[in-house]
């Protein structure tokens, strides 16, 4: 027992000759360098993506004028005469995305209101994960669902003249895919609305519906907007569900019953075939990729801006 009474101070690293001078150990420096480099991988990835898309697209624009590309209304990459007017791909993409949003925004928003304003914590904790399961399903599976069930069993009886591949089927299934995203992000926005605001309205005798509609939703509007824009970006970039459901027909049409080819579907089509890598079609793939990247990046940045703005409102 008494053995413990030694002054142990000298045991640790010898007697202390005053305070150490500030210095950073080698380990500390190496670790920080590694951490920084890892964090920089993200920036390198972004830079790499931009670089690859830019150089390859420049190669494409050496063969096809950017004006023709951006304003042309015929996309014919596999049948002579080749024509590379991107508008059909863009309208198809937007058509699918808009159909998806028309479904997902009301449904997702109502679900969010229910989760944020009505549901008890227990109900919420069961429903939210269930909704998020949908977001976790591989999109190829949703595509499979679209061609095997949604189109023949549900949509074709309802919509006369609907083919096996259609913008409508793609839109519906992408809508299903992004509903949880809209619901989850809107739910966050709704719950960020301060309690006091709600309580003020309740105190004046408002019903829960009135509070939701007149107080909470307007206050959360920008957050909901951000969610919708992000969901739109997701819909625009969606690939496999659309490839299977919408087909590969580069139509310039706004008729949802027709088969269309989105930007992503074109990229898949080219990379599936045995297109030579130095052909103009393959270069077109990069140009379409660049266009897609620009559109989704624009939407994401816009969404982030809105989120950053509304975060500040309640601080």
């Amino acid at each position: 027992m008494t053995a413990h009474t030694t002054t142990r101070r000298t045991d640790i690293g010898g007697a202390f000759p005053g305070l150490r001078r500030r210095r950073r150990s080698r380990v500390e420096q190496l670790v920080e360098a590694f951490l920084f480099l890892s964090a920089a991988v993200g920036v390198l990835t972004t830079a790499g993506i931009v670089l690859v898309l830019a150089t390859e697209t420049a190669g494409f624009f050496a063969l096809v004028s950017p004006i023709d590309y951006l304003t042309g209304t015929v996309w014919s990459a596999s049948i002579q005469p080749y024509q590379f007017g991107v508008l059909p791909l863009i309208t198809s993409t937007l058509l699918v995305a808009v159909i998806a949003l028309v479904l997902a925004v009301p449904v997702g928003l109502l679900a969010a209101v229910y989760l944020a304003e009505y549901a008890s914590d227990r109900v919420r904790n069961t429903i939210k994960p269930a909704l998020e399961t949908i977001a976790g399903i591989p999109t190829i599976v949703l595509g499979f669902f679209a061609i095997n069930f949604l189109t023949p069993v549900i949509l074709q009886p309802l919509v006369p003249g609907l083919g096996g591949f259609s913008a409508l089927a793609a839109g519906v299934v992408v809508g299903l895919l992004i509903t949880p995203l809209v619901a989850s992000l809107s739910d966050d926005a709704l719950r960020a609305v301060p309690r006091a605001l709600r309580e003020g309205a309740y105190a004046m005798g408002a019903t829960r519906f009135e509070v939701s509609r007149k107080v909470v939703l307007p206050a959360a509007l920008s957050g909901v907007m951000a969610a919708v824009i992000l969901a739109m970006s997701r819909a625009v970039g969606e690939t496999m569900a659309v490839v299977l459901a919408a087909g590969t027909n580069p139509n310039l049409t706004l008729d949802p019953r027709e088969s269309v080819q989105t930007m992503t579907a074109f990229i898949v089509q080219i990379s599936l075939g045995d297109t030579p890598q130095d052909s103009i079609q393959f270069k077109a793939l990069f140009a379409v990729g660049a266009t897609l990247f620009a559109i989704t990046l624009g939407l994401n940045v816009l969404s982030n801006r809105i989120v950053a703005r509304y975060r500040n409102v309640y601080r």
Binding site: V43, T46, V52, G237, F286, G289, L292, L297, N300, N304
Partner: peptide, 20 residues
């Protein structure tokens, strides 16, 4: 800057990663 970059990367469509 790095954070903004990460959140933007999370929103890049997966097919673009395929191209890269």
């Amino acid at each position: 800057l790095l954070r903004t970059n990460i959140s933007n990367l999370a929103g890049v469509p997966s097919i673009i990663y395929g191209i890269f």
